[in-house]
Design a protein around this nucleic acid. Sequence first.
DNA 1: GACCAGGCACATC
DNA 2: GATGTGCATGGT
Length: 216
Amino acid sequence: MKKRSSLLRQLYRRTFKHYGPLHWWPGETPFEVMVGAILTQNTAWTNVEKAIRNLKKNRLLDPKKLLKLPPQKLARLIRPAGYFNVKTKRLRHFLKFLMAEYNGNISKMKRRPSAELREKLLAVNGIGPETADSILLYALAKPVFVIDAYTRRILSRHYLTKKETPYEALQDFFLQRLKPDVSFYNEYHAQLVNIGKDFCRNNPRCDQCPLNGLNW
DNA sequence: GACCAGGCACATC
DNA sequence: GATGTGCATGGT
């Protein structure tokens, strides 16, 4: 009989063999990753890229500059990412938080412990568990496991968890079985998203999925 | 032209 | 506390 912890490692080996290293998150700076984490909420990444390109083109990828920008102009720039009115508000809530707590200094933020940061991020209107954890892992290099719609779907399709399992419980499922490791968690979540995109949508292609035939 | 995307807050019962 | 709904663009 296989040990429980090796189950998630098996899954990872399969996906990694299929895709190779994915080197997430696609973003040049921690701040860019944070902005991307908010913009990608329920949104295809290709649309987020356009919005980030607009911000870069105008040299606005900076907490102070972005906060100084009139909301209307910000909305226009991030328009391709969808939900632009909502996301303008969410971005501005986050920027105000960043300035108030850390004076816009990401290095200062990074020095704080992970649990404290998570709690504070979750208190920001517009930042939920996935966005908070994405920021912690991909921008601040904290060993937290990110759960998203794909992760949820893949686990439940393989009868490892139930569809309605709450976010924190799913996160514990990974945390209890995998040693804390930033680059491993980083790569693991990236792999899951790719599997989700390619094989595990609402109209799944399980027959061609690299996870096909895994026995647990 | 329908369907979907790397969520979240808020209303309503 | 559970369940439903609005938010919006762009790719398939």
